[in-house]
Amino acid sequence: MHDGAGLPRDMAQAPEVLAPAHVGRWFGVLFVGLIGAWILHQLLTNPGFQWLVVAQFMLDRRVLAGIGMTLELTVLVMLIGAVLGIVVAVMRLSADPLLGLCAHAFVWFFRGTPVLIQLVFWYNLASLFPELSIGIPFGGPKFYEISATVAISSFTAALLGLGLNEGAYMAEIIRAGLLSVDPGQGEASKALGHRPFQTFRVIVLPQAMKAIVPPTGNQVIGMLKYTSIASVVSLQELMHSVEDIYNRNFETIPLLIVAALWYLILVTILSVGQAYIEKYYSRGWTNSAPAAA
């Protein structure tokens, strides 16, 4: 401490701290600018892109129908995945060894086999079980019976294949989220007299959501594009609609651009939605309010 401690000092006398010079950044700007210019030049002058054809098919009825199917499939698959995921995650974390084993087996099987195989498998279920029925197995009575070829359309095959697979992945995401919640939270909730389901729904799950939402957003975005794999069971989603069109008019590149642009638009919308949901579940965790006095 010098003699003038506590007295106001002259600010101009204190040496200012400056940012270092960024010589390398100018080379970076030049390099990135060059690549950007080349991409723009190609987009504008390469006749292969055929922007007029792209524009013509962007709002084509078949393309829009394909988008509708893609969205419908994504929403339903994610719903199935989330519900299955919660159930399987809770089973896996339960103290009951039988439930735990079943959950483990589910995740092991559906995460361990390629979706493509599962899709085609469900689509061809009729060759394994010509008749689907609900009843007592090993010759017991049947309450309900339906032909497999009627029950399994390309839509139900896609729903089953993608949904079961998604359930296995969501189970792991949700399990990780539930494990991230401080065990003291569940204890405090129990001590207040909350029943087990109330403790789960009101205290544990909302806090787990903070860890569950970001990877789930990732899954939704992935699934939106992954539904294109359902074209192998000839489901008329976006990719299959576009394939149908270019198989007839041979405008492959422009139609692939149409599909890519639409996927990009939809993913952008989803990303914005995800940001809002993440903000909601970080309630009470932000530093926006002043700290305690």
Partner: peptide
Amino acid sequence: RESEVSRQRADIGMVFQNFNLFPHMS
């Protein structure tokens, strides 16, 4: 069963070393 125990716990208050307030609630 846990659901029966919870009825008993409702009449017994508990305060923890680490407070365990619910961070997502006001």
